[in-house]
Design a protein around this nucleic acid. Sequence first.
DNA 1: CTCTTGACGCAAT
DNA 2: CATTGCGCCAAGA
Length: 114
Amino acid sequence: MDPVEKEYFTRAVYGIARLIPPGRATSYGAIARAAGHPELSRLAGRIMSHSGGDGVPAHRVVNSRGILTAAAAFGGAGRLERLLEAEGVEVRSGRICRWREVFWDPLAEIVPKE
DNA sequence: CTCTTGACGCAAT
DNA sequence: CATTGCGCCAAGA
């Protein structure tokens, strides 16, 4: 991938992640799509894992099924769940309950649909 | 240089 | 549900 394009993608990923409202969550794939690269969901995940905090709510990003695949990276399964529950997101067995409602799609929510 | 892994996704089985 | 296959890219062995 082009270094420049990669840099652009990275910025887009962080930028979009910062827009996720509290109490909501989105997926790596959704972010990748919004960033203009639907096939780079995996890369989006990698990028998020590197997001050292600066205003990037990484705990609000899960996989497309609402499963907290990053739990381990947050220092134990409970840590991540606690962060989400503190914002009103119900989590059970490592998955977000009512995922359909909690899911925040950048494309649909940022871009006003005609 | 090749292989393997991984905070992924999606369709098919 | 769980598995498999295929697509993608980066980093580490």
